[in-house]
Write a protein that binds this DNA or RNA. Structure first.
Length: 854
RNA sequence: GGGAGCGUGGCGGAAUUGGCAGACGCAGGGGACUUAAAAUCCUCCGCCUCCGGGCUUGUGGGUUCGAGUCCCACCGCUCCUACCA
């Protein structure tokens, strides 16, 4: 048989697999189901090495699962809405759909060349009206459930993308997509009330045993639950103002430090700010400061060690705990949209307040101290006198003892402390405070001022207000006749915008914002279960059969965005009665980045991009897949190195020849020259091969189950190495000496092929047919049987240690009694322990003996 | 500032979760075959050594019969997040 030639056999088998439809899947209750899913790609054009690694992991899991008897759903689609298509359309005076669909075809062809086993009949393309129609339908269900809201508030505006962004899409004040500095603008926008599910999104992280800890931690941090209390402060009267007794509420997790509050701070955006100062002599100064603070860019705001600025308003608030008046300031370090946009400042216990107090010479009242603080006895001695300035270098934020705190003095203070509980209880009794839980998570801003997205199905009517598009009118189709390069948008497209009100029939305007593309990716995995349904987004029976996804695979960059939104969608659709589970993704594998050989990110500007197509052209897809898997654990970064690819290519070649040889179809070029070894030698090496065969099959299964592809391949290499030893020792005549010997060789050959089938599918299919003479597919075979008993050796080598250091190695029978092993161990290190007192000898069966001697 | 994680040969990485550190591979040295090269095959390959052995998993301590693995401190790197009261 001929040498391994991937360039000839890979396209040939890809064609056969497509024609026989071997990856198509339907519900089948006779087998356990397994849903293996990789995050669908954005159709950006050519595929890159990140795609190769991500989709190879998924494909190996899918193929292996089929061999283990699962009915496997393994689909693929495209996250096809989004800005790059618009930008390309503007550049080429074309339409985004043209660019998008061309790229999809390119990527699809590449995925086929990689040999990925998708059920292509289930493809979902997000910009297809058959799909986005149901995204609109889901939007309407959210609306009915009160989870859609239009509201005016300061939002993140990306001047580069000319649209608003969700909180999650802004990092360090910059746009996640184009890196522009994000501005704050007051706009009326559409929101999904994800905060209604904040607690459940946090709690259900506990269900996700199959998720990496760091991803769960990131989500928990993002949701950011804080337990604390609301405290009502009262505005003190000011001559010429009639607003005395106005309440301003603050949120705090440290009510225990209320006695240390020496000033009060409002965010520059605080809604009632102007009312507080209007007509006073400070009005102009305060409002000018607030306006200037609002203009500071988000990037500047994001800098951690930024200097704080503020200005006194001339007003005072009354602290409910002690009736004292504290000055009200406006400062740029208070976040407007967390809590109430107002905070009580306790400089002795909060570093930010401390810095601000130092800068503006505001009192720092020590009310909480560590027990070893030298101030502690002093404060106790001078009861009654409040110390208002201390020479601390920083605030004391840890747990401590409350001092100068009225009747709470002496209690323990800190988050969740006794002191905090006592003060909140008293505030509650007095009606000036109450328990409160705050979340960092904000509602999801979903409207985008872009054309290439899913239109929000809403209509603005002068008489009826904002009304939903009736379900029977869906989908709201994107107009195709639009010239983006001429500056046209949905808002300027009169034909699209003009409509009639579905309630009163009067002329009305259609909503011209589209939905965030993350709404498309929040439910595509549900659509895969029933992709051609024209009457519903999916049949609940089908969705509940396949879902939740058993293994989800994707990049860590989606740890918050996509995964959080998808969890939210799942919970809402469950409450809608469409799904009967709480969490969409049971197990999550976050793959590490593929970097160049120096550990740098591959980018066009650096000129270090490795093209998967070039690699396939050089060594074939199977070698590329195997190399990617062998480079290391999937969740770690991988440094791509072409030398490794050449090595793997040689490995596939070597096993190819071994299989041919074992199957008796080797020609002169591929036959291994056996040595005519003695019968004893052959017996010995055969025994070793048989043992390895069983051990490795078990080991590879175990490794696949844990996604340890690199060690699985290493184990297959070990089996190949002993196979090589066997083939060098036994001549062809010796190996064909009996039916038993022939069966032994055939089993070994089939085992090698099956073990590599999920990894190198074309290679395996060709050998399965051409060398082993089968007519069905290797990919529909069962995983090779193995017997753990057969993997055991008769004798094992164990180490003999003296005081933990290896001094000798001895061979003992695998089933030797502990006492015999101990005795053998003692005998083996006789000289090393001569004259010493033996305290004890520990035996670890099959591993070592440790003799403790003095 | 907060959170998560990592640190093992020249390199990528193993190590049944506390039991022989360096599996498997890449790179490299030596050899066989060849007129020669490629391919292939064999073989060596952590460091030091006075060839007895000694030292090795970022550094220092601890727990243990035994530590890459557990605990404490420090050093270094990576990722996430960011004035969240």
């Amino acid at each position: 048989m001929k040498q391994y030639n991937p360039h000839e056999l890979e396209p040939r088998w890809q064609k056969v697999w497509e024609e026989t439809g071997q990856n198509k899947v339907e519900e089948d209750t006779s087998k356990p189901k397994k849903y293996v899913l990789e995050m669908f790609p954005y159709p950006s054009g050519d595929i890159h090495m990140g795609h190769v690694s991500n989709y190879t992991y998924g494909d190996v899991i899918a193929r292996y699962s089929r061999m283990r008897g699962f009915n496997v759903l393994h689909p693929m689609g495209w996250d096809a809405f989004g800005l790059p298509a618009e930008n390309a359309a503007i550049k080429h005076h074309s339409h985004p759909a043209k660019w998008t669909y061309a790229n999809i075809e390119t990527q699809k062809a590449s995925f086929k060349r990689m040999g990925f086993s998708y059920d292509w009949d289930r493809t979902v393309v997000a910009c297809d009206p058959e799909y986005y129609r149901w995204g609109q339908w889901i939007f309407l269900q959210f609306w009915k459930r009160g989870l859609v809201e239009r509201r005016n508030s300061p939002v993140n505006w990306c001047p580069g993308c000319k649209t608003v962004l969700a909180n999650e899409q802004v990092t360090e004040g910059r746009c996640w997509r184009c890196d522009s500095e994000v501005e704050k603008r007051d706009l009326t926008q559409w929101y999904f009330k994800i905060t209604d599910y904040a607690q459940e999104l946090l709690d259900d992280l506990d269900q996700l045993d199959g998720w990496p800890e760091r991803v769960k931690q990131q989500q928990a941090n993002w949701i950011g639950r804080s337990e604390g209390a609301e405290v009502d402060f009262t505005l003190a009267p000011l001559e010429g103002k009639d607003d005395a007794e106005t309440k301003i509420t603050v949120f705090t997790t440290r009510a225990d430090t209320l006695f240390g509050c020496s000033f009060f701070v409002l965010a520059p955006e605080y809604a009632g700010l102007h009312d507080l100062v209007s007509g006073t002599e400070r009005e102009q100064e305060v409002m000018e400061f607030a306006e200037a603070a609002k203009k500071v860019s988000a990037v500047e705001r994001a800098q951690g060690d930024r200097e704080k600025h503020g200005v006194f308003t001339g007003r005072y608030m009354i602290n409910p705990i002690n009736g004292e008046q504290v000055p009200v300031w406006v400062a740029d370090y208070v976040v407007a949209d967390y809590g109430t946009g107002a905070v009580m400042a306790v400089p002795c216990g909060d570093q930010r307040d401390f810095e601000f107090a130092r800068k503006y010479d505001l009192p720092i009242i020590p009310i909480i101290l560590g027990e070893d603080d030298p101030l502690y006895p002093q404060l106790k001695d001078e009861q009654g006198r409040v110390v208002t300035s201390v020479d601390w270098e920083a605030a004391y934020a840890a747990e401590g003892i409350l001092v100068q705190s009225g009747k709470y003095t002496g209690m323990v203070g800190g988050k969740h402390s006794d002191g905090e509980a006592a003060i909140v209880a008293d505030l509650e009794a007095a009606g000036t405070g109450r328990r409160k839980v705050e979340f960092r998570l904000r509602d999801w801003l979903i409207s985008r001022q872009r054309y290439w997205g899913n239109p929000i199905p809403a209509i603005h009517c002068e008489h009826c207000g904002v009304v939903p598009v009736p379900e029977e009118d869906l989908p709201v189709m994107l107009p195709e006749d639009i010239d983006l390069s001429a500056g046209e948008t949905l808002a300027t497209h009169e034909e699209f915008a003009k409509c009639t009100c579905p309630v009163c029939g009067a002329p009305a305007r259609r909503e011209t914002d589209t939905m965030d593309t993350f709404t498309c990716s929040s439910w595509y995995y549900m659509r895969y279960t029933d992709p051609h349904n024209a009457a519903a987004p999916f049949d609940p029976a089908k969705a509940n059969h396949w879902l939740p996804v058993d293994q989800y695979i994707g990049g860590i960059e989606h740890a918050i965005l996509h995964l959080l939104y998808s969890r939210f969608f799942t919970k809402v659709l469950r409450d809608e009665g469409l799904l009967d589970f709480d969490e969409p993704f049971k197990n999550l594998l976050c793959q590490g980045m593929v970097l160049d050989s120096h550990g740098d990110v591959m980018s066009k500007s650096k000129g270090n991009v490795v093209s998967p197509e070039d690699m396939i052209a050089g060594y074939g897809a199977d070698a590329v897949r195997t190399t990617m898997l062998f480079m290391g654990p999937p969740d770690k970064e991988k440094l791509w190195n072409e030398d490794g690819l050449a090595g793997i290519y040689k490995f596939l070649n070597r096993v190819w020849r071994q299989v041919c040889d074992l199957a008796g179809v080797a020609d002169d070029e591929t036959l291994f020259a056996g040595d005519e070894a003695s019968v004893d030698e052959i017996h010995e090496v055969s025994k070793k091969v048989l043992r390895e065969r069983h051990r490795v099959v078990g080991k590879v299964a175990e490794d696949f189950d844990r996604n340890n592809f690199n060690t699985a391949i290493a184990a297959i290499m070990e089996l190949s190495n002993v196979t090589g030893e066997y083939l060098r020792k036994a001549s062809l005549e010796q190996r064909c000496s009996s039916d038993h010997a022939k069966a032994f060789d055939a089993d070994l050959a089939e085992t090698l092929v099956k073990l590599l089938a999920p990894i190198a599918p074309h290679w395996a299919e060709e050998l399965w047919h051409a060398a082993l003479g089968h007519t069905d597919s290797v990919h529909s075979q069962a995983w090779p049987a193995f017997d753990p008993e057969m993997a055991k050796a008769d004798e094992v080598e164990i180490a003999v240690q003296v005081n933990g250091k290896v001094k000798a190695r001895i061979m003992v029978a695998a089933d030797a009694a502990e006492d015999d092993v101990r005795a053998a161990g003692l005998a083996a290190v006789e000289s090393a322990i001569a004259g010493k007192e033996i305290k004890k000898a520990i035996v670890v069966p099959g591993r070592l003996v440790n003799i403790v001697a003095k």
